[in-house]
Design a protein around this nucleic acid. Sequence first.
DNA 1: CTCAATTACTCAGGGCACTGATTATTTCTG
DNA 2: CAGAAATAATCAGTGCCCTGAGTAATTGAG
Lengths: 167, 167
Amino acid sequence: MAAVDLTTHPGHLARRLQQAHYLLWNTMVSEEITSPQFAVLNALVAEPGLDQRTVGERVGLDRSTIAEVISRLSRRGLLDKVRDPQDGRRFLLRLTDEGTRTHRKLTVRTARMNQVFLAPLSAEEQTVFFDLIQRVSDAAEGLRNPTEPLTTQRRAVLHQATPGENI
Amino acid sequence: MAAVDLTTHPGHLARRLQQAHYLLWNTMVSEEITSPQFAVLNALVAEPGLDQRTVGERVGLDRSTIAEVISRLSRRGLLDKVRDPQDGRRFLLRLTDEGTRTHRKLTVRTARMNQVFLAPLSAEEQTVFFDLIQRVSDAAEGLRNPTEPLTTQRRAVLHQATPGENI
DNA sequence: CTCAATTACTCAGGGCACTGATTATTTCTG
DNA sequence: CAGAAATAATCAGTGCCCTGAGTAATTGAG
C-alpha cells in the first residue's frame, strides 16, 4: 500500500509525452524518417559540413547514438560523410540533394503535426509549455555538464545516499 | 537556409526532457533498476496479481516492451510470474519480498530526485507543468485510441497528405 | 457443440539511448 | 622532438520502444 502516484512523476510524464509524440510522428510525418533523424537533417541544413560530434551536440544525441543515426541516413543516401583533410579524426557531414529535398518535405509535415499535437493548449499555454520543459531540461543538463568541476554542493545534491542502503 | 528552430518542437523537447531525467535517475536513484521498471514494481504494489497486459496498460508500455521489462524483473528475482488457473493465456504477476523491499527503497530516492529535477520551477509552475504535459499526452493518446471507430474527421486530421508527395 | 473471432503472450526486426573500452589522430608539454 | 593527454569515432553490451506476424487459449455466434 505504499504505491506512489506516477502522474506527479516528471520522468513518467516525459516518457508518456515522448510516446505520444512518436505515435503522431509516425502517422502524420513519416514512417521512414524518425524525429531524431529529422533533427540531424535540420542541423545540417543550418550548418553544412559539421562533424559528427558537433551535430550530436546540436541535436542532443551522444557519440554512440549519433553514429548510428548518421550511418542510417548515410545508408539511405541522405547525407555524405567525408574525412576532414584538416583533421583526420573527423568526418564532415553534408546533405545530398535527396537529403535536402527530404528535409523540406518533412518540415511542412512536422509543422502540421506540431499544430495537432499542441492543439489542446492555448497559445499562451504553449509558450509556457516550451518554457517550463526547457528550463527543467537545461537545469538537469547543467547538473551533469559542469562548467566548473564538480562542486561539493552539487555532488551532495546528486549523490545523497540513504544511510546504509544501496541498490 | 530553411532550417527550423527545434526549441519550438514539442517532440524534440520531450526527448531532451526524457534524456535529462534518465541521467538524473541514473545518478540519484539507481543504475540497476530503470524508471520503467520502477513503474512496474509500483503498479504491482498497488494491485498485486495483475496480468502482464494490464500492468503494461497501467504504466504505459506496449505488449512487447512490457514483456521484456517483466522478464528482466523476473530474472532479478523481483517478481513472480504464474499462469492464471482461470485463464491459461494470462500470467499473474506478484512482487517477491525482495521486489517489495526494492520498491520501498527506490520510492524514497525517487522522491528526492523529483525534487531536484523540478527545483527550477516554483510550486505553481510545477502544477502547470504536470497539467500541460498530461493534457497533451492524453489528447494524443486519444487520437490513436478511439472510443468510437475512426471518424472521417480524425482520419482527416491525422493523414492529410502533401499533394503529390510521399516519403 | 463447433468454428471463427478475440485475447494474452511471444518472437523477429528496426530504431533510440547510454556506458565503458578501444583505436586513430592531433595537440600539448617538457 | 618525444611521450603524454586529449579528442573523434567505433564497438560491445544493456535496455527501452514500436510494429507485424505467429501461437496458444478462451469466448462467442450459429
